[in-house]
């Protein structure tokens, strides 16, 4: 093969390789990233005691250095609660107030469940996130005479995070929105037993 032919071949191989590298890198970014929501949620978890939620205070959140859209909404208080279902199902207990609240459950691939405070029963929103196996166990152990108000959500992955958003429509409601996010509790419960009643 001539020298020129070999060069073209090498260039073609390089381009094919570039395509492969591109695809691999794009697919690997979510699991390698250290600044994504899940990693940040895990990093912010320490020192919070039993409460595994941390609020991004509204009003004074400075945008990130490379912030372009979508910027975080300045009037929304966000709480993150990472979970690892190998420890047991996660119970998210929220009390609804006058402010609009939404709870979304994110897995590795995105939000697989979302609910707003309009679905609350008597002011309480109780979500139990479990794996398929824990779900079957909970069904088997259930007492038929006892009515459960929990919303059971089967998660596709064992790891993920719960996002709580509370919207402060007016600047004066910002403190209340932050407090509402802080009031949401995320607790790991022993598999199959519902000891903590919601209400």
């Amino acid at each position: 093969m001539s020298r020129r032919g070999r060069l073209w071949l090498a260039t073609a191989c390089g381009l094919v390789l570039a395509g492969l590298v591109h695809i691999v890198v794009v697919l690997a970014i979510p699991s390698l990233s250290e600044s994504d929501a899940l990693s940040r949620a895990r990093a912010g978890q320490g020192g919070e005691g039993g409460m595994r939620i941390f609020a991004l205070a509204t009003g004074d959140t400075p945008p990130a250095a490379e912030a372009w859209l979508p910027i975080p909404d300045p009037v929304v208080a966000v709480g993150l609660c990472p979970y690892d279902l190998t420890d047991g199902p996660l119970r998210v207990a929220a009390r609804t107030g006058p402010l609009m609240m939404s709870v979304a459950v994110h897995g590795r691939r995105g939000a697989f469940y979302a609910v707003t405070d309009q679905a609350a029963v008597r002011g309480a929103l109780d979500l139990v996130i479990l794996t398929r196996r824990q779900f079957d166990e909970a069904l088997a152990n259930e007492d038929e005479n006892e009515v459960s108000r929990d919303v059971r959500v089967v998660a596709p992955n064992t790891r993920g995070f719960v996002v709580v958003r509370v919207i402060a429509d007016l600047p004066s409601q910002r403190a209340a929105a932050n407090a509402a996010v802080q009031a949401v509790s995320c607790t790991v419960e022993g598999a199959g037993e519902d000891t903590k009643a919601g209400g």
Binding site: L80, S102, H106, A111, V115, V163
Partner: peptide, 29 residues
């Protein structure tokens, strides 16, 4: 942007920016 069926590029953008996208039941950007 926040749905389970989001394309790999969208997921990579979200991960790099630390963005928590709105889920389908939550809202729309």
């Amino acid at each position: 942007a926040g749905a389970v069926g989001a394309d790999p590029y969208t997921r990579a953008v979200n991960a790099r920016r630390g963005e928590i996208p709105l889920g389908v039941g939550e809202g729309l950007l």
